[in-house]
């Protein structure tokens, strides 16, 4: 581009999201066409992710969230010390932060697992007659 004349107008677009040569699977077409089956796929992903988020938030509420109540019900906690430091300062000033990181790390691992399960499910889905939903639900709801 030369500096002498005004630069030409540029259309700002994102990077291309789709590769042209990929054969699109049946599952993605179901979702794009907003069929009942596509709907089921999406709802199951949404529910998985929301449940995961709620589990993490409950873990947060039951640990960090109960501290005010604990100190309200047991005021003598204020005199407890770990070494020279009052316990409230240790819990809220230091230990909460690594705990938040652990929760965040756990969430990212599980949500990405959910998403890759969903991707496998959708891409490997055959024709609309036999949705392999049940087996994948079992797989996802498995241990851990």
């Amino acid at each position: 581009m030369t500096q002498d004349q005004p630069p030409p107008r540029v259309r700002v677009t994102g990077p291309p999201r789709r590769r042209a040569d990929v054969v699109r699977s049946a599952g993605t077409r179901e979702i794009d066409a907003e069929t009942a089956l596509g709907e089921v796929f999406m709802r199951s992903l949404l529910r998985e992710q929301l449940m995961l988020a709620i589990r993490v938030l409950i873990a947060l509420a039951l640990t960090v969230g109960v501290l005010p109540l604990a100190f309200h019900l047991l005021p003598s906690l204020g005199e407890v010390r770990w070494g020279p430091v009052p316990v409230a300062w240790v819990l809220l000033g230091v230990l909460t932060y690594p705990w938040l990181v652990v929760l965040g790390w756990f969430y990212i691992r599980r949500s990405e697992a959910n998403e890759s399960d969903f991707a496998d499910l959708v891409e490997s889905s055959p024709r609309r007659s036999s949705p392999p939903l049940r087996s994948s639900e079992q797989r996802r709801g498995g241990p851990e």
């Binding site: 999201r17 990929v22 993605t28 999406m42 992903l45 969903f118 991707a119």
Partner: peptide, 18 residues
Amino acid sequence: AGRFMVRLHTPEAVDLQR
């Protein structure tokens, strides 16, 4: 709304017409 929700929650690995 339904279309938009799909876009919000679909992982990038899945190749949809967003």
